[in-house]
Design a protein around this nucleic acid. Structure first.
Lengths: 200, 200
DNA sequence: GTCTATACGGTGATAGAC
DNA sequence: GTCTATCACCGTATAGAC
């Protein structure tokens, strides 16, 4: 009987092979989509056999869940609760934009969450929930940031609407940049949000 | 030797089975993605065997190309060259928004082009080109509309930037609505564009 | 942990009868 | 046009040796 869980303790050093598998999986999903990501390809990429991949992640759903949990943790770690000062909030927002910009420009991909959403019906129930949480967390974080931009303590409905518009703009900018193969479009579309503090 | 082409003459009545296959294929892609769409499933949906699907579309790439050509034609037919009057242009823009809204709300899906973009590496070269053209055409059409909104004859760089922002907003709104399973978000995000004529 | 070997179903595609 | 039959894969997943 195997007591090992797919979820590892946070901040504990992870098995390097397991980590390599997750990295390869994320790359593969970003490039080819979830359905096209196969254990055989991942194994070849890591330099092991597919049976060994199953040792670390029994099923494809297990691997995806681990990926989503890590993705959320990374995001939460990078987007620490920002200062309430207006300029600090704008800086935090710009950092958020930069995350989407990186994926779009240097990786040439849509966001992981958007790719998975395109194949939503293929995901297991738990991954669907984690995906939902991922969006909710980002919208909430953005709404808080927007409220700080005008010295409010708690986000208003208007702040939440701004947050939705920013999120939509980022995902849409990513799509447009990839579709037209013109990286500059991302910056053109998202530029207004980089100086939002001056207009709110 | 088969002289039949995958592309049918425009406005000619199409083989009803062929049409049913295309409809089923589009539905399947919107729901499950391109990779998960299989000839066997389409055949079952239409009520024939997969070999018969291959008769109408020799390869999966052929089917996708036919789908993209039809999609572009439908779009061009629906989005006729608008009047240059400001109010007529706004009405045309609203109609464009409505197209994305329909897919998002009633079909509960992202746009076909966005789904395919998530699996971009799986597409054949010709489909990639058609997908690229599809985005270019929409951005150009939107830029023209925006120019009409302020009585210009030819789109400026500023108009083109507006067009990109509208496109990004629509795709992002669709993603957000699907991710949060809250259809209202689409309208909240895209509402500003419905009254753009008053602010430009 | 990683391997070999294997089971078993799904997939795109083709040949040939009707 | 549609069928049956078949092919050569590729996919997830498991059992058991090392």
């Amino acid at each position: 009987m195997d007591m090992r869980s797919t979820l590892d303790a946070p901040d504990k050093p992870m098995n390097p092979t397991k980590l390599a598998i997750m990295d390869a999986a994320e790359q593969s999903i970003l490039k080819h989509g979830y359905k096209a990501m196969s254990f055989r390809d991942l194994a070849a990429q890591v330099g092991i056999k597919s049976a060994s991949v199953h040792y670390h992640f029994p099923t494809k759903a297990d691997l995806l869940q681990a990926l989503l949990v890590r993705h959320q943790s990374t995001l939460e770690a990078a987007m620490k609760p920002p200062k309430k000062k207006r300029q600090a909030a704008q800086k935090a927002l710009n950092q958020f934009i930069e995350c989407y910009r990186d994926i779009t420009i240097s990786r040439g991909s849509m966001a992981l969450s958007a790719v998975l959403l395109a194949e939503h019906s293929l995901l297991d129930a738990q991954s669907k929930e984690q995906l939902n949480d991922l969006y909710q967390w980002q919208c909430d974080w953005l709404a808080t940031i927007v409220s700080y931009l005008h010295k409010a303590e708690v986000p208003t409905d208007s702040d939440r609407q701004y947050a939705s518009q920013i999120m939509a703009s980022l995902h849409g900018a990513s799509i447009l940049a990839k579709a037209t193969q013109d990286a500059d479009i991302f910056d053109q579309v998202t530029q207004p949000w980089r100086t939002l503090v001056d207009r709110i």
